[in-house]
Nucleic acid binder design. Sequence first.
DNA 1: GGAGTTCGATACAACGCTGTATCCGATACA
DNA 2: TGTATCGGATACAGCGTTGTATCGAACTCC
Lengths: 210, 210
Amino acid sequence: MSQPDVAKPVTRSRENTRARLLDAAAQVFAEVGLGEASVEAVCERAGFTRGAFYSNFESKDDLFLELAGRFVSQQVEAVRERVATLIESGADATDTVGLVEALDVPGDVRLGVLLMSEIRNRAMRDEKVAEAFIAQDESMVREVAQLIEDIAHAKRLRFALSPEEAARIVLTAWEGVSSRAIIAGLPEKELLELRAREVGRIGHLIVEQG
Amino acid sequence: MSQPDVAKPVTRSRENTRARLLDAAAQVFAEVGLGEASVEAVCERAGFTRGAFYSNFESKDDLFLELAGRFVSQQVEAVRERVATLIESGADATDTVGLVEALDVPGDVRLGVLLMSEIRNRAMRDEKVAEAFIAQDESMVREVAQLIEDIAHAKRLRFALSPEEAARIVLTAWEGVSSRAIIAGLPEKELLELRAREVGRIGHLIVEQG
DNA sequence: GGAGTTCGATACAACGCTGTATCCGATACA
DNA sequence: TGTATCGGATACAGCGTTGTATCGAACTCC
């Protein structure tokens, strides 16, 4: 898919330029949106010319698909790690806000939200992106469901909702709150606080409803 | 903002072309996205040339701002009406699914979801759009909050959440479910069912948690 | 019914972006 | 040290899009 017709060798240098282009693309796409971003702009940001670009990707769509896959996977992986350490550290399950904060993925939050929004938007129109999105989204749901299940177990609670359903609600709220915060122009710090608070409240609602 | 330098008369014919252009734009923007939609494509869809376009709008952004305002207002208005009739008809407050279904706005659902997603996406980067979006979003929250409050009153319940908070959760879930359905490629009928079911469940969660 | 105005079509100039073909420096390898 | 390959820069042709300037038909208003 993202592989050119004539298979090119996978040298260290090559991987490096690809990575720089992908990082630059993430920034540019987040800033102006996928549609209004030109290949030119991405290359400029990365410090390359289009020669480098077309030597590494077939098109903007090709790059975006790869970026989307990479980015969403990273998010899932980051959350997976957090959940793992949370579970074995036996965190206080009543502190939903603390738990929610612990899910924050390191990195530029604003960029993350904007990029994810861009990916979601694209996934609504592009089969390929949708496929990648759904797969990773389900992984994410499973991770969070696991966390919720462990909390339920620790508190000896039974829910009317399945852990998966609860996880979906939490994740949906997560995204919704993030978007609203960005639209309202909240700085990163307040965004994080608001998100922890609101999503924590939802978590509470689910947990208390035994 | 959307008014040309030299104020143009507001004739019937003029309003008609503006409306046709706006409708066409809604379709095109929903189909391919704002960024990848050309002014040309919008005009073609509307059955005009760019001459008509530039005689009525300053730019694509100008048109989009107007479209966004109009569209979001319509949504709010439609919901407002439904809520009003629901309230005075004294609908069965325990039937959350029925209540949720009653909020469905008439028209092409898929188009509505895609367009709203486009508007939200744009609002994250554009002050003007954000402003319009926030204003209307708050109206919407108030409408739904009103509905929730009436249900609470009818059932003599008190919530841990304020009606506004509850409304936000419902609306966020609404959008989240819609997006996921579109990404999954569900046909309109199933989208509506899924949405009613899932959002209804959330409503239940809020209502039962007295 | 004639003069003025309005609205949209047409024609045009300019620009930006894309994708490819070619070139050149660097690196690896013998 | 010579040779071959690789990776990115440069140059170029072509296209689509934008915005404006101009034109003509239709409608308005006296």
